[in-house]
Design a protein around this nucleic acid. Structure first.
Length: 423
RNA sequence: GGAGGGAUCGCACAACCUGGUAGUGCACCGGUCUCGAAAACCGGCGCCCUUCGGGGCUUGUGGGUUCGAAUCCCACUCCCUCCGCCA
């Protein structure tokens, strides 16, 4: 959510930022509503001031044993006017808020402007895609032959786009989760949390999934709860409606969670394998910081996510998403894309974003500045560190051997109980 | 699921019975004082509107009663204790 004061002062900036993100918003209509709202607020506050003053006088008259019936009669009328005006103001405010909720965060000035992913800007490449001199296979074929993932039986119990991991496949998934959490907690300074996987609507609202993206999520209707699409939601909401101290910032959290996405499959892409499923595992990184530091924190967040791929020795590149490819709530996003032979391309495996104060304003996460003064909104950031299912796919494909087995990356061997090869 | 208790500024609590417009302590920030600090004292320390004079809002949330609600009434949310059920 943007600051209405900022929108009042910079309507054309907001209009342009939204348009660059491919969102059309009627700023003039919003500001007209805002203007009416402010006039009505002034009006009702005049009446309330009168009511407060006279009510106090009534109290004094009563105490002195004198008659106050004229004043009481007047206040009865004032009370009725106040009630009607308050109702009108409430409706205006509701309309204004629903406008505000639909306005995306504005892209940072360093973000390339463009309509879609073709305008994304490549920042760097790391490692070399493997040059196979044998008949290599996509991960879903490898996994089927190694009997480590069973999509057919998963479909029986749940439906399409759910994997059932088995044997060393399940072990690999668990090894990756532990490896990533250990790396982030011991070397990058993150505090590990294990959050709920179901959250209420208020939490989804705080991070920006609601109200715009309800259809992308699984809702547990009987309880008014949503399955989280990412640990970003519960972890960012840890500090919702709190006032933090500047001294405790920045805060770093890392969390493993399962992630649930209803939208996967709608586009008909990546119908096979581990790339696009309704449920997948992810280790998430979340930061709370001051506005002054948030962009350097974004750079280090990116490095923390990259470190996972470097330890696993998987080739990847980093791109800065263009305005048209970014998400609703983000001001700047780097995607890390891992090389995936079956796609013959780099594919997203992590998304690292600075939301500035967009989520903090929605979720009311503020901090008390060290030298006093008004409370300020924190900046929130998060990034995948990493998506586990896609990491499994990348390992299977990039580490496959001519004989159909898969070598285990050296960094993972201790987490695999010494197993060096999946065969 | 049942029975009780509770929610007031960042923290701890008061005012609630008996309606009169929210106070105290701690923490924090600024100032005075000091070589500096502590202590002491003064001010600040939640949000909104503002023509910068000021005004309004704020006691978990939403309603109701009333000239006036932290206080009385109703509903809801969350937390705590006990009982039941339970991995």
């Amino acid at each position: 959510m943007l600051d209405i004061k900022f929108i009042r002062a910079n309507p054309e900036v907001v209009q342009k930022g939204a348009r660059d993100k491919g969102v059309n918003v009627d700023i003039d209509e919003l500001l007209a509503l805002d203007d009416r709202w402010r006039k009505k607020v002034y009006e009702v506050e005049q009446l309330k001031a009168r009511r407060n003053k006279v009510s106090e006088e009534i109290g004094l008259l009563r105490k002195a044993g004198r008659d106050a019936s004229d004043a009481i009669a007047e206040m009865r009328r004032v009370a009725a006017s106040v009630k009607a005006l308050d109702e009108e103001i409430r409706e205006l405010k509701e309309r204004i808020d629903s406008y505000l909720m639909e306005i995306p965060n504005l892209p940072h000035s360093t973000v390339p402007v463009g309509a879609d992913e073709t305008a994304n800007q490549e920042i760097k490449r790391w490692g070399e895609p493997p040059a196979f001199d044998f008949n290599w296979k996509p991960h879903w074929e490898l996994a089927a032959e190694l009997d480590i993932i069973d999509f057919e039986r998963a479909a029986k119990m749940s439906g399409a786009r759910f994997p059932l991991l088995k044997g060393l496949g399940a072990r690999l998934e668990r090894a990756l989760i532990n490896f990533m959490l250990d790396l982030h907690t011991t070397e990058h300074g993150y505090t590990e949390v294990f959050p709920p996987f179901l959250v209420n609507a208020r939490s989804m609202f705080g991070t920006g999934q609601l109200p715009k993206f309800e259809e992308d999520m699984f809702k547990v209707g009987s309880h008014e709860l949503y399955l989280i699409p990412t640990a970003e939601v519960p972890v960012t909401n840890i500090h919702r409606e709190e006032v933090l101290k500047e001294e405790e910032l920045p805060l770093y959290y890392t969390a493993y969670s399962a992630c649930f996405r209803a939208e996967a499959g709608a586009a008909g892409r990546d119908t096979r394998g581990l790339i696009r499923n309704h449920q997948f595992n992810k280790v998430e990184l979340v930061k709370f910081t001051t506005p002054e530091r948030s962009y350097e924190e974004l750079e280090s967040l990116l490095q923390h996510a990259e470190a996972v791929l470097q330890r696993l020795e998987l080739p990847y590149r980093v791109v800065c998403l263009s305005t048209g490819d970014m998400t609703f709530a983000s001001a700047k996003t780097y995607d890390i894309e891992v090389w995936l032979p079956s796609s013959n391309a780099y594919r997203e495996i992590s998304s690292c974003s600075n939301f500035e104060d967009f989520q903090a304003r929605r979720a009311e996460i503020r901090y008390r500045p060290r030298d006093g003064g008004r409370l300020r909104y924190v900046h929130t950031l998060n990034g995948s560190g990493l998506a586990v299912g896609r990491t499994v796919a990348a390992i299977l494909e990039n580490y496959q051997q001519p004989d159909g087995t898969v070598r285990v990356p050296d960094a993972l061997v201790p987490y695999m109980g010494g197993v060096q090869r999946i065969d």
